[in-house]
Design a protein around this nucleic acid. Structure first.
Lengths: 220, 220
DNA sequence: GATACCAATTTGGGATACCAAGCTGGTATC
DNA sequence: GATACCAGCTTGGTATCCCAAATTGGTATC
């Protein structure tokens, strides 16, 4: 793999994994030495991550994007639009076998699944569901939105009950799709996205003090 | 303005203005000499334009993205999702004054408006309509989609009647929004987007031979 | 003690040099 | 005459150097 893709990938992992906290300053020189690359690939990586919204310019310099509650609210509306569109498109395709692949993916998760896996599974559900639509733009939109949400979802305080509810909602959505009931599936998906958003934002708002204590910038 | 933004902007103008044809090869060295910049800003510009979909990697090297008919079809579905969502959001905001600004913008165009202005006005209508929603993600999605469509719309063979129809449809959509009739507005907008897409793709498909003769790559 | 100012360092933007991979054109051999 | 092969050139990827601007830290002055 080229150095450029390597820096980009590793830096993205560090940001998404909160090894570099939201709001932290980044210097090109630090990234250079951290990954043993030179400035050109570092710059390319930073430019890419900027378009993903993971980092942003801070006057002269770079900052890991803070957790932005207003942005989280807006992303949910955006997700609702594109995910529901993708879902309806999938329903018209009548490709039930593909849906069953996702169901199997969900079923492979049980109580023994380690908690940190839930994060990835929850994200992949939405991404793979969008991929089924066959529309590259809807798919990318969902994938990019989930990437932007990733850190916030990781910080969210979720109890077992909340995880179980999300799991059940995912299954219910797939059942409706498999049954060919696009309207029900769309309604369930909308409610799931908006409900998740509300719980997410509430959780972060309540824990804002704790997050700041950990050095994480959270803006309204 | 920095050199980097300058190269990016100028190169984008050249690509969107078809001064560099779809499918044409680009070398970093050529861009360097053309704009009198060195490789660093050129690289940055190319990376940005790649994320906008205006250029794409061609193995080793760069190519101005060909006109892709399948992509145009998919973009329309994507646009329908995000534009309708933005429209409905705008309706719930009940901000009629903002709508009237767009109406004024449209009204400022009359028969004396030069033809090349129609291209920009048609694009800006959709972008500004999305901006009204106040949702940054819906707005960006529409803006980026319209950018991707820009070259194809420029190549489209449109007669006066088609232009008048588009104009009328834009006005009808705004009237529905102003009347607070979200459902009608959404229906009109969907029909407008899909109808425009079908006419666009048909036009390009029919003229494919002519486009190739001009050196423009058009893929199915 | 506060503040204004200056120098030194840091930092991102840009330019250039170098390299490896791949393409091209020509040539030599069969 | 066709084909295989090799040299040279082109090109993107990477490293390094330079520069201007901005930040910083300290000092001198009020």
């Amino acid at each position: 793999m080229s150095q450029m893709q390597n820096v980009e990938k590793q830096l993205r992992e560090m940001i998404l994994g909160l090894e570099i906290g939201p709001g932290e300053r980044l210097t090109e020189r630090w990234v250079e030495s951290r990954f043993g690359a030179s400035r050109t690939p570092v710059r390319a990586a930073l430019l890419r991550l900027e378009t993903e919204g993971l980092i942003c310019r801070d006057g002269r310099g770079w900052t890991v994007s803070p957790i932005n509650l207003a942005e989280l609210e807006q992303i949910a509306v955006y997700r609702e639009a594109v995910e529901v569109a993708a879902l309806r498109l999938t329903c018209t395709l009548q490709d039930r076998s593909a849906v069953e692949i996702i169901e199997a993916m969900l079923d492979s998760c049980d109580d023994k699944t380690p908690r940190e896996e839930w994060h990835r599974v929850g994200r992949d559900f939405h991404i793979e569901l969008a991929r089924l639509s066959g529309n590259e733009f809807l798919f990318r939109a969902v994938r990019d939105a989930m990437t932007r949400l990733s850190r916030a979802r990781w910080l969210e305080v979720r109890d077992e009950a909340a995880l179980g509810r999300a799991w059940a909602e995912h299954h219910a959505i797939l059942s409706a799709v498999r049954a060919g009931d696009a309207d029900s599936a769309a309604r369930l998906l909308s409610a799931h996205i908006i409900g998740s958003r509300d719980r997410l934002v509430t959780s972060l708002r309540n824990d804002r003090r704790g997050l700041r204590a950990r050095g994480f910038a959270v803006v309204a």
